[in-house]
Design a protein around this nucleic acid. Structure first.
Lengths: 197, 197
DNA sequence: ATCCCATGTGTACGAGCGTACATAACGGGG
DNA sequence: CCCCGTTATGTACGCTCGTACACATGGGAT
């Protein structure tokens, strides 16, 4: 009977919960399924997370860092000289183009806030975080709009099985920038050749 | 033992399913809960809808007509002389401002397509329907962009408990229109006073 | 060294679930 | 009028679930 006194038990349960949601969705999340995935007894998951909501809050907060990691991997996003819409479209492509389970996982937890008020503050944290990042390059209103359209494009891709079109995303994001196209000298309306399907 | 031979049994089950989802969410949807809500025996729901996915497809398809009804109630949307962003923002306000359970219901079924491939064609139908409506006023690319940003704004409102800001929505939608602001004579970039942070 | 409590473990209960299936009523076609 | 397939009904099985709770354990404070 090993592993009495396991200081990182709680963290390992969160990791297991994320793997469970990635594999089976929120519908497959239960104290038992997480316990099995983490290889701990049932009582251990109920002890650390009395409610499944508690567990989801912890999982969503940790999953959000996944997107933050993708953003951090594209430092050009913070470079004031770079083409903001182009960079955003590229980052989105990198996120959506990789393993779809990662995106599904984050979105499933994110969207679960619709019915679970406990998750809403965490969802708001994420939106505010991305918004703050973008606000540094434009202004708060535009930043919120960019976040909204990023969300909307992701939804269309994930919900309707449409492939992601990076050129389309860049065009839409470009139109959202406030001033009449003076920011990067490239006026809106001229679609570059589609570099991504 | 009344109601042997009930020709509209199937439809009444769909209506009951929608009420169940509106009240308890998809997590509360089961053959039994629907049977209780529709006041029919358990065997009746399993007979007409072998799988819960079947039931959800029928419910989502019927729920989509709810939004279509809101759109139909604003004929100005189809008037080529009207201010498209303004009308869209108004329609969205009417939808979000009413009983929130209706919006939650439709979005919950819509978002369920993320994990249930059976729902994806129905979700795509909805997006294409709204897109076609808007394409008649602009062009297909802009129409898709408008749908995306409408979705994104709804998500932000529903998921983060932020109140809906119609002026903000109008501003964002205006920026999405293709040509340099010649469509309605109102150029982008002039922000109305920020009524929400 | 001892005590105490946060942490870990095993088991049981009652409820709800999808599913299967044997049977009953109905009503249109013969 | 009768017959038969579609529709409707009731019940039961096996499973998973959240929850509760009694008991074991071990390390930090004293």
């Amino acid at each position: 009977m090993p592993r009495r006194h396991d200081p990182e038990r709680r963290q390992r349960i969160i990791d297991a919960a994320i793997r469970v949601v990635a594999r089976a969705g929120i519908a497959g999340l239960s104290h038992r399924s997480v316990a099995a995935e983490a290889d701990v007894p049932l009582g251990s998951t109920t002890y650390h997370f009395t409610t499944l909501d508690d567990l989801m809050v912890a999982a969503l907060r940790q999953a959000n860092e996944g997107f933050a990691r993708v953003v951090a991997a594209h430092p050009a996003l913070s470079d004031p000289e770079s083409d903001l819409p182009g960079e955003l479209a590229r980052v989105l492509g990198a996120w959506l183009g990789g393993d779809r389970t990662g995106v599904e996982l984050e979105y499933e937890l994110y969207l679960a806030a619709l019915r679970r008020p406990a998750l809403r503050p965490v969802a708001a944290e994420w939106a505010e975080g991305v918004g703050a990042l973008l606000a540094a390059r434009t202004d708060p209103v535009t930043a919120r709009a960019l976040v909204a359209v990023l969300d909307g494009i992701c939804l269309q891709v994930l919900l309707t099985d449409t492939p992601y079109d990076e050129a389309y995303a860049r065009e839409v994001l470009t139109r959202l920038l406030p001033a009449p196209g003076t920011r990067d000298g490239r006026g809106p309306g001229s679609l570059p050749p589609p570099t991504a399907g």
